[in-house]
């Protein structure tokens, strides 16, 4: 289906140099709706709600922020959050701005690290968008589920503060 002018305007926001240097799509040539749909199917098959993942990501940002750029240990993870000057708008055109917070969360036992931004949390929670394949902030839903849920002793309880 041909996109409406409004949709085309929004699609533009995902391209390199509009909101971030390399944009949100990476090498993914699929339509944003198709990217979201496939990722949602993966989560559905794993029986994991995207809100749960957004909650976990937000929880680690919140804890990491307390470290004022110093690593913080939490539940067997090492979290480092960097806060840069400026704000980013949501590429889907939602009102409001998101602080330029970038989190690096490392599972201490396995050494595996994920990186994401405050905006990533919003995109996952509100839009189910994990980024296009090959994009800088792409989080693979399956890997993310394993990262948070397959760790021994980690309760998959939701963070009480869910707002992003």
């Amino acid at each position: 289906m041909k996109p409406t002018p409004e949709e085309e305007r929004l699609m533009n926001n995902f391209l390199p140099g509009k909101i971030s240097k390399d944009g949100f799509l990476g090498s993914d040539s699929r339509h944003i709706h198709d990217i979201i749909e496939e990722d949602m199917r993966i989560l559905e098959a794993l029986d994991v709600d995207r809100t749960y993942l957004a909650d976990r990501l937000h929880f680690f940002i919140r804890r990491g922020r307390e470290g004022l750029e110093m690593p913080v240990e939490e539940e067997g993870y090492r979290i480092e959050v960097h806060w840069q000057r400026g704000m980013l708008p949501c590429p889907f055109g939602e009102p409001g701005l998101h602080p330029k917070l970038m989190a690096f969360v490392t599972h201490s036992a396995s050494g595996k690290t994920i990186r994401y931004s405050q905006l990533s949390v919003h995109l996952i929670r509100r839009h189910g968008f994990f980024g296009g394949k090959g994009s800088f902030f792409r989080l693979q839903p399956r890997e993310l589920v394993h990262f948070f849920c397959d760790r021994a002793g980690l309760a998959c309880a939701k963070d009480p503060e869910t707002a992003d």
Binding site: M87, P89, P95, L97
Partner: peptide, 10 residues
């Protein structure tokens, strides 16, 4: 303007 006229920063 922080959002480049996208109507998000106010």
């Amino acid at each position: 303007s922080a959002c480049g006229g996208r109507g998000t920063c106010a």
